[in-house]
């Protein structure tokens, strides 16, 4: 057993390393995509509501679920652009996710 760390500490550290490396923790590309999709989805909802509420009555009368669905996807796409830019910009400057020492090095830039 190491002088510096007890077995209990090593166990706890192993758990933390595994948790940090799990899923998106060790996949920066997937993390970027997930952040962009989620942020743009959140942005698309108020965009759709605003569009609906500001639409003139004569156009609103023709709306069905198909048109609304299409409108939502357009809002999602529109929101994805600034979300992706923000994710890219913050990704480059943010501190690296703590990785276990054994994990392969990540190149964030």
């Amino acid at each position: 057993m190491s002088d510096d760390h007890t077995s209990e500490e090593i166990q706890a550290e192993a758990l933390l390393r595994q948790a940090a490396a799990k899923g998106l923790g060790s996949r920066p590309g997937a993390r970027l995509v997930a952040i962009t999709l989620w942020a743009s989805f959140l942005g698309a909802i108020p965009m759709l509501l605003t569009w609906l509420l500001l639409l003139p009555e004569e156009y609103a009368a023709t709306l069905g679920l198909a048109e609304l669905s299409f409108g939502f996807f357009m809002c999602w796409l529109a929101a994805a652009a600034p979300a992706a830019i923000a994710a890219l910009l913050t990704q480059a400057g943010s501190p690296a996710v703590p990785l276990p020492p054994e994990a392969p090095n990540e190149h964030l830039h």
Binding site: M1, S2, D3, D4, H5, S7, I10, Q11, A14, L15
Partner: peptide, 14 residues
Amino acid sequence: TSTKPPATEKPGLL
């Protein structure tokens, strides 16, 4: 003084 347990010992990792 390494932080890793020696290979001969099993630190009882879960």
